[in-house]
Amino acid sequence: MKLTLKVWRQNGPKEKGKIATYQVDDISEDMSFLEMMDVLNNELIEKGEDPVAFDHDCREGICGACSMFINGEAHGPGRGITTCQLHMRSFNDGDTIYIEPWRAAAFPIIKDLVVNRSAFDRIIQSGGFISVNTSGNTLDANAIPIPKSDADAAFDAATCIGCGACVATCKNSSAMLFTSAKISQLSLLPQGKPEAKERVVNMVKQMDLEGFGNCTNTGACAVECPKGISLENVARMNREFLLASTTKS
């Protein structure tokens, strides 16, 4: 099939960007979206032009590197998938496709479609861990039984891949879904309870400091999240923050 691509091109963080138009022919329906981008890039290289920069790595939907805003949606049409899992059969011959980077003040553009998501790392560094040393001399793994429902809920929250689709989707570029997923995972487990109050306060602080917007509860993030992280996590974070900031000394 033949496609018209409208791709955001921007040379560096401080340079001005614009939408450039490219035509690609001979695109197979079985290609993944990123393989279609590979085709475009190889054509650009052969023509002596600068290929489009984009983040990608595992190409099986788990590393969270790929990050394209395609035709108005994070990771394009389709639910529960990342950009690398989007296939060209989701488009029709002759379609025009808009491809833009994640848009957020906290995710500055590095080049073209590549953004800097280290804000997420800093949120985790501010408290997204359990302070246990790595000696291996801890309790036996089965010493504390954990109700299956809690373990499952913690797992569901922990499946977040940190891709940033929630921020990209949110009209306010809010990082609440990301932050709350980690807070939920750790506060649902007995091992994470001792530090729960410090954790939620510190992580929310860092989130604010990074310049993400606020949550308006539109729910768009959860819809576009490739891992289906639930809004219940956001509520849990709201609840825990309220509790922590009213009871913490």
């Binding site: 939408i19 108005g72 833009e100 848009r103 003040a105």
Partner: peptide, 16 residues
């Protein structure tokens, strides 16, 4: 302020 540059193409009606 959290989103200084808007998207050229948005389709928010599909998710909210």
């Amino acid at each position: 302020k959290a989103r200084p540059v808007k998207y050229a193409y948005e389709k928010p009606q599909v998710n909210s």
